[in-house]
Design a protein around this nucleic acid. Structure first.
Lengths: 197, 197
DNA sequence: GACAAAAGAGCACGATCGGTCACTTTGTCA
DNA sequence: TGACAAAGTGACCGATCGTGCTCTTTTGTC
């Protein structure tokens, strides 16, 4: 029981890393087995099928994201402190927690966004929950509170800057990506917090 | 000679569409052959290998992007008119030119960003050229002209909003994605054009 | 209308894909 | 410590992968 859970976690971790690198489609069970030091048939003691493993990957990555990006901010006061912490942790997640591969959630999003099915549904559910959380945080950024529409617009830009940061850094090799993203975000926060009473 | 070029173009077109849907890795030569109504061995009269076909796809998509997004703007006056036209055409490219699959360049970017090789190099070259063009356009947005750093920052945000638009629309099913993107972009242009003399 | 070249079909190859099964080894707990 | 389930292995399955080969059909040219 104990041993099994540990190797299962290792499998998921390796699969997530490889999937972030080459996409779910680009990773075979053999690749994962080799990376984790197991025989291919050994994997099937932990997962019923490849798709079952994919689901575990999405779930694990979603939980890890929450731990690393939201949890550190949750203990701060609502509004600006939390939002700034989330943004900082999000960039850190992309750069440091997945240094070789980039954020697996972004890779999975692009890969799954036009492939209906339980995998896409699970990812979507997690993303929607996080989005809701951050929109509420934007609402609390100002007194009087932001309208739902204003907060949604602000979240759109926040998420855009995270995506832009990843694109600039990874695809364009832009070493100033973080600076650009932080500057854009600070401008957004300033404008949003300052808008007419 | 003539006939061959036509089918070659059809192959590339189908391959690009399928690759935008499922990624280059997720598309087999059989898939492409079937989509274009050809036998698998027939493909090899037009391409030496799968990677050769991938290169043709990247090149063709890059040229098409330039035609659909930059060319319509190039005939307008420099600065704001061109930038607004580019942004509009870019969203149109994502939504209408690739309605089922989404923009293939974004899909390819995420798939290739950590896979060194001629494919990634070619894509990067095209993206860098376009980026340079738009940065120059931002520089011309205002008198006195924007500094290189200011223009780079503005381009970072423009590209971010395009990425955010695709993510919101395709992954999150946000039907207001275009409105959010346009609003964010207009804000960016206004602020950038207005900054201190 | 002959004819070379181009376009494409059909088949077969070795490798690898996801997955199954019978078996051995290892860990857990009474 | 002994028993029994869990963990892990290796051989193997049918299907599909990218690619080469030979052959037929189509196309453009003189």
């Amino acid at each position: 029981m104990r041993k099994g859970e540990a190797t299962r976690a290792r499998i998921i971790q390796e699969a997530a890393h490889l999937a972030a690198l080459r996409g779910l489609t680009g990773v075979s069970l053999n690749d994962v087995a080799e990376a984790v030091g197991l025989s291919k048939s050994g994997l099937f003691k932990h997962f019923e099928s490849k798709e079952d493993m994919h689901l575990a990957v999405v779930e694990m990555v979603g939980g890890m994201f929450r731990d690393r990006v939201w949890t550190p901010a949750a203990s701060l006061p609502p509004g600006r402190p939390r939002l700034e912490k989330v943004f900082e942790c999000w960039l850190h997640w992309c750069e440091e927690d997945w240094p070789r591969s980039g954020c697996p959630i972004m890779a999975l999003s692009v890969e799954l966004d036009d492939q209906p099915g339980p995998l896409r549904d699970l990812l979507q559910k997690q993303l929607r929950a996080f989005r809701r959380t951050l929109i509420d945080e934007f609402i609390a950024l100002r007194t009087p509170p932001l309208s739902e529409a204003e907060a949604q617009a602000a979240y759109f830009q926040l998420k855009s800057f995270v995506l832009g940061h990843a694109d600039a850094r990874r695809m364009m090799g832009d070493t100033d990506a973080r600076r650009s993203a932080v500057a854009a975000f600070e401008g957004l926060i300033d404008r949003t917090a300052r808008t007419a009473a």
